[in-house]
Design a protein around this nucleic acid. Structure first.
Length: 374
RNA sequence: GCGAGUAUGGUGAAGGGGUUAACACGGCGGAUUGUGGUUCCGUUAUGCUAGGGUUCGAAUCCCUAUACUCGCC
């Protein structure tokens, strides 16, 4: 089946909304945070741990799985769920972002994108049709349109040309899409320009996708610009479809996104910073490597996760400093739980009509001078 | 006991008379937003075993002491 969004409550003071996402693998509340499992694994965690944390959807990656092991192998395994033993919903990114983020030399044409493999330097050619074909075979629950992520800043002419091309690519992808068990989301681009975001949103919605995402954010722009990009696009998105802000995962950005009406977020941040020794806390991000935690025998935060229930900062610091993978795992568990819990709290706040107070209080703690951060 | 050699930061070390002592590791901080899984960036010796001397100028040359290493009795 296709995913279905069910709107249960619209906040009166903000655009935030509480709802349900019905999927092949169950129903999940929104707003939600989706951890990233690029190579068919949320790095360092087992699928059971991901579920225990409370994550619903996880994001995996078309580009990476295309290169290795190849979509045919995943397909032979019985699809991505069976291959990786995850019986929850999976969303696959289209590969459009990888063209932006990891191809040093790329050649974008109307037909598609020529670029070099990050693994062996081999020349690759990815098109909207190819991306959809791969995703159909991977058999994720939600496939993404193949888009171009416009860099920031981008001049208007380029942004317009690229936005129009992404619209044509969206149509081409949708035309070849062939998997009744899978949904397809469109992606709004348009850079930092209001009229282009407007145009992109209107035209993407006309194509009638199962959900809509806002792309091209968190590519180096300041926060004010990012929030504007959301505002410009989101008012043209239908109320009865899920809205997904791609690549955003800083706690405050998630809150601001929710207030603007976003339902879904994904980000590498919790797992990436975990591997580098950082942890989210209510009082800001901490670097567990800091010498001040050497003899700190308290948990990372007042948190209900496995890590905080059983382990101290001093121990995790020791593991991270010693480059032990268990330390990366413990921090990944905590960080994903932190963002998941954040969305749980945001849902409660929407239900209780106090999301603005929640935001102000969160920011005060997160940014404020607090003894725990000193 | 005799002879020879070496002494540079937390570690391995470069520099063999001329301004701010290379580089690496480690330490200490920071970064990271649709993940190229151990990454990137910044910082870290006012001082070269100690004392004395030569010189305009010494980590670099000389003397003494000390420590360590190797060889011989």
């Amino acid at each position: 089946m296709k995913v279905k969004y069910e709107l249960l409550k619209n906040d009166t003071k903000t655009s935030s909304r509480y709802g349900l996402l019905h999927t092949n693998y169950g129903t999940f509340e929104t707003p939600m945070f989706m951890p990233v499992g690029t190579l068919a694994t949320v790095k360092t965690l087992s699928p059971e741990e991901v579920k225990e944390i409370g994550s619903g959807v996880i994001l995996s990656n078309t580009y990476h799985l295309w290169l290795r092991p190849g979509e045919d192998i995943v397909n032979k395994a019985g699809g991505l769920h069976k291959f990786m033993n995850y019986d929850g919903p999976i969303l696959t990114d289209s590969g459009g972002f990888q063209v932006f983020s990891l191809a040093k030399k790329k050649d974008i044409t109307e037909e598609g994108v020529h670029f070099k493999s990050h693994i062996d330097g081999k020349s690759l050619f990815l098109t909207p049709e190819k991306s959809i074909e791969i995703q159909n075979k991977l058999d994720s629950d939600i496939a993404m349109s193949f888009d171009e992520c416009i860099p920031y800043p981008a001049d208007y002419e380029y942004a317009k040309e690229s936005t129009l091309r992404t619209l044509r690519w969206a149509k081409r992808g949708k035309d070849v899409f062939n998997n009744d068990n899978q949904s397809l989301f469109g992606i709004v681009q348009g850079g930092e320009y209001e009229d282009l975001r407007h145009l992109s949103a209107i035209e993407t919605v006309k194509m009638d996708f199962d959900g809509y995402s806002i792309g091209g954010t968190s590519v180096g722009e300041d926060k004010v610009t990012m929030y504007k990009m959301i505002d410009y696009a989101i008012k043209y998105l239908p109320k009865d479809k899920p809205r997904y802000l791609m690549g955003v995962g800083e706690p405050i950005d998630i809150i601001e996104g929710v207030i603007r009406g976003v339902d879904m977020f994904d980000c590498v941040l919790p797992t990436r910073i975990a591997r580098h020794g950082n942890a989210f806390t209510r009082y800001g991000k901490i670097n567990i490597r800091n010498a001040k935690y050497k003899e700190d025998f308290t948990p990372i935060d007042n948190c209900d996760c496995y890590t905080c229930k059983h382990y101290t900062k001093a121990y995790i610091r020791h593991l991270i400093v010693s480059n032990e993978s268990f330390g990366q795992r413990l921090l990944s568990i905590h960080n994903i739980r932190f963002l998941t819990k954040l969305t749980e709290d945001l849902r409660e706040a929407i239900k209780n009509d106090n999301i603005l107070e929640y935001r102000d209080n969160f920011i005060k703690n997160y940014r404020g001078e607090h003894e725990n951060t000193k």
